[in-house]
Design a protein around this nucleic acid. Structure first.
Length: 819
DNA sequence: TCCTAGCGCTTTTTT
DNA sequence: AGCGCTAGGA
């Protein structure tokens, strides 16, 4: 980056079998112009170095977790540039995510200086596909200013297509069709290539017709979806050999990151480009292929040597991340997989701590244990940002978040709803699109009645009908309709105002900064007003997001390039800096690392996911196992696995058994922790573990609750798990319906003490008569709702305004005084 | 046109 | 349980 840190002279051309031919004058000049990399090869281990220097022919680098994969990729690019084998513009480097592309760009320019910034062909498959398509749009029936539809637009369009074919959208949901079409596109299949049998699965055999109709509709709209960005490239290159050849000539060297995640379409895309020069270097790890469910084809990496004869395969097995026990545990698990190329990770690091396995009674206790351990780590001067909790499914997060809120542990959820997927952002973008691209019907439709301006279903239908009849955009149709009296006066007036606004904004476009224009549009359209009037808790956050959106536009030269960027980039701009625990899914954790990793929910059915097993059998199981491997290899120094005996799934309590992966861990690298309250979990029969009072398994809920309440008052120290919140008496009688229907299973604890739970406020309220120890306006802390202020007191019943949860009536025994 | 009660669905998620 | 969507009524 910094030119001042000038780099010493190049090392001599690598002295190996693939030594380049003598350099011509122009090539020498090129080398001279390339920024010098210092001893960029020096820090590499022998395998890494081999991977960097094997520039010619197909190369597969099998890079295990934490083996320096990104380093190899970036150094390889630097090497190609520094040795004069290629200009930056002659190197194609593809990644899956924008984040990965950004990082790679950064690291390359760090190595080679400003030349790296100029790598025009470093990007995601989709970004590069877009670039190619814009240049040759007319050859595939598009104009070069085609719009890229996001998922929501895609669904909206499919709904229209389904409706147009006279199919009941409720019976055959657009979402499902979208996943069919995405699946076909992932496999590189155009409508005419889809196997007849497959398409029959949707809408009684009309799936294929719908796919065709959808594609036709996209063309009319001058639009593509994400899949098309690759598919249309394939079509372009196949139908126009001269165009293909120009790209084959251009890309002297090609690099692919995360090759195990490529789908068939991407494989075909790469193969077409690599056919001529064959300098294709794929980096990946078959043991980290976890995206099969969205079309990734592990076979691509497993078959690499077959697909690219004469390929060099290099294994990176030296792990620089994890300590010995963690690595051995991860290796032990992944070794059970059959479909793999086989690698053995090793480390020169110390053995470190063993992987721990802990059982918990239920998911709440699991969350409590994790919270406690994190607090202990924190007290021990560990940074929270070095700690992560990795879950299998997002639904697991809530309980853990609840616990963190209660404890006041700062945390951040990674990979939540993405910035650009948030409704308010999509709405704002729709306004901008409708302004900048008047033919963008989907954008227009999204905001025509947002905020509500009296243009409901009927009005939209009317515009639609006219647009279709006159074969014009909805915007044009609307323009026509305000001049006629096909519409009722009220909507007509409203529509006229809206059209006038759009005219005004469009007129501003060339003389107003685009971010200013955006602010104006959001203001004048009443959109920001809409959220300002909204009293809900997240309205403020949404307004904040809108501000952030406008601010982020500054970085782009004009509205068009901003919209282009938006269509492809879906990353949230994470605010860094604070010391927080990270909470995310295992999928989101790929590529990250933390000192300490908590892995809750290792239970059959949840992890491995029952659905993965049902739908994909052994392949599904192996993918889950890879996920376990990914989870463990995120840990640098500590990995902690948990399972609970009872977990609520879709609102119902279920008895669960530990994951088979727990038992696949190699014994000698694992330590089973003592549960804080000693109760046997493993091997306990389902009924034993869940009957609270002898045979009360079938006892009506009210009896159980009474018994529990009595016990609660008798034992103030008992483990309080209910919230103490009041509920209507009626609701109470509706809840205790026994196991599997919402009632919570009871713990059997050694001393015969049973934790009271779901305590019915009314009963407990009668059983304790002591006056409240809390004062009006006092601060209290509630186990479930967190901190709050006492608003009213009635005996032992408090009305508390919780900071997070709002106003609730709770029993004072459920709160404690807080500062 | 707007509000709300009820229904059904529910892994993982990028572009 | 929680969310989003839809239908049906005000």
């Amino acid at each position: 980056m910094n030119p001042a840190q000038a780099l010493p002279a190049l090392p001599a051309a690598p002295d190996d079998d693939h030594a380049p031919p003598p350099l011509s004058i122009s090539e020498r000049a090129r080398v001279a112009a390339a920024p010098r990399a210092s001893d960029y090869l020096a820090g590499l281990n022998p395998e890494q170095r081999q991977a960097v220097e094997a520039t010619e022919g197909p190369v597969l680098v099998l890079a295990g977790a934490g083996t320096g994969k990104t380093r190899v990729l970036t150094t390889r690019i630097a090497h190609l540039i520094a040795t004069g084998k290629a200009w930056p513009s002659g190197i194609l480097a593809v990644t899956f995510t924008n984040k990965a592309a950004r990082e790679m760009k950064e690291r390359v320019s760090h190595l080679v200086g400003a030349a790296g910034e100029g790598m025009p062909w470093l990007g995601t498959f989709h970004a590069i596909g877009t670039k190619v398509l814009r240049r040759h749009a007319e050859l595939v029936g598009l104009r070069s200013d085609f719009t890229i539809l996001g998922m929501d637009d895609q669904i909206r369009l499919l709904k229209q297509v389904i409706a147009a074919e006279g199919i009941d959208e409720k019976r055959w949901p657009a979402r499902q069709l979208a996943s069919f079409i995405d699946g076909w596109k992932n496999r590189g299949l155009q409508p005419k290539e889809v196997p007849a049998g497959e398409a029959a699965a949707f809408a009684n055999g009309r799936g294929l017709a719908l796919y065709g109709a959808y594609q036709a509709r996209l063309k009319t709209l001058n639009a593509t979806d994400f899949g098309d960005l690759l598919l249309e490239c394939l079509r372009l290159w196949r139908d126009n050999p001269d165009v293909l050849e120009s790209y084959q000539q251009r890309f002297r060297y090609m690099l692919v990151d995360e090759y195990q995640d490529t789908n068939v379409a991407q494989y075909l895309w790469l193969r077409l480009l690599a056919q001529a020069r064959k300098n294709l270097c794929c980096v990946g790890d078959d043991d980290q292929s976890i995206y099969g469910w969205r079309g990734a084809e592990v076979d691509n990496i497993l078959r690499f040597e077959h697909d690219f004869p004469g390929a060099t395969v290099i294994r990176l097995e030296r792990n620089y991340r994890s300590t010995g026990h963690i690595l051995a545990a991860a290796s032990g698990i992944i070794a059970k997989n059959k479909d793999r190329l086989g690698k053995t990770l090793r480390t020169e690091d110390e053995a470190g701590e063993k992987v721990t396995v802990s059982g918990a009674w239920d998911s709440e206790e699991e969350a409590r244990q994790i919270g406690e351990e994190i607090e202990a780590l924190h007290a021990n001067k560990e940074r929270l940002s070095d700690v992560a909790v990795l879950v299998r499914i997002s639904a697991q997060m809530r309980e853990i978040e609840d616990r963190f809120v209660t404890l006041g542990l700062p945390y951040r959820v990674i990979g939540g709803p993405r910035f650009y997927e948030r409704a308010e952002i999509r709405d704002a973008l729709a306004y901008l699109r409708a302004t900048a691209q008047p033919a963008d019907d989907l954008a227009f439709e999204r905001i025509v009645n947002l905020p509500k301006r009296g243009l409901g279903e009927a009005a939209v239908q009317c515009i639609h009908a006219h647009a279709r009849r006159a074969r014009v955009s909805m915007m044009q149709a609307a323009r026509y309709l305000v001049e006629t009296d096909e519409m009722k006066p009220a909507p007509r007036r409203s529509l006229r105002d809206l059209m006038a606004s759009f005219d005004r904004w469009r007129a501003m476009m060339d003389r107003t900064a685009h971010n200013e224009l955006a602010a104006t549009i959001l203001e004048e359209s009443g959109y920001t007003d809409m959220w300002q009037k909204e009293k809900s808790a997240d309205a403020a956050g949404r307004l904040e997001n809108l501000k952030e959106l406008v601010r982020s536009m500054e970085e782009f030269p004009d509205l068009a390039s901003f919209l282009e960027h938006i269509a492809l980039v879906m990353d949230a701009n994470e605010t860094e800096g604070q010391d927080r625990v990270s909470l995310m899914t295992l999928h989101a954790a790929k590529g990250l690392e933390f000192d300490t990793v908590f892995l809750p929910g290792w239970e059959e059915g949840l992890f491995p996911s029952q659905r993965a097993l049902d739908e994909n059998g052994r392949a599904g199981l192996e993918e889950e196992r890879r996920l376990a491997h990914v989870g463990l290899t995120r840990a640098k120094r500590r990995a902690k696995i948990y399972f609970a005996s009872n977990r609520r799934i879709h609102g119902m309590w279920n008895s669960t058994i530990p994951s088979r992966f727990v038992d696949e861990l190699p014994e000698e690298h694992v330590e089973v922790t003592e549960a804080p309250a000693a109760y046997s979990v493993r091997g306990a029969s389902r009924f034993e573990t869940m009957t609270p009072f002898g045979s009360s398994y079938q006892t009506p809920g009210w009896q159980r609750a009474q018994a529990r309440a009595a016990e609660a008052s008798a034992d103030p120290d008992s483990d309080i798990r209910g919230s103490g919140e009041f509920s209507e008496p009626g609701a109470f009688f509706n809840q205790g319906r026994g196991f599997g229907s919402g009632a919570r299973p009871q713990r059997r604890s050694p001393g015969g003490r049973t934790g009271p739970q779901m305590i019915e406020g009314e009963i407990l309220a009668k059983s304790t008569g002591a006056p409240s120890a809390y004062a009006l306006g006092g601060r209290v802390l509630h186990l479930k709702f967190g901190p709050g202020t006492v608003a009213a007191i009635d005996g032992n019943k408090l009305t508390v305004d919780f900071d997070k949860a709002g106003r609730k009536m709770v029993l004072d025994s459920f709160v404690e005084a807080a500062s």
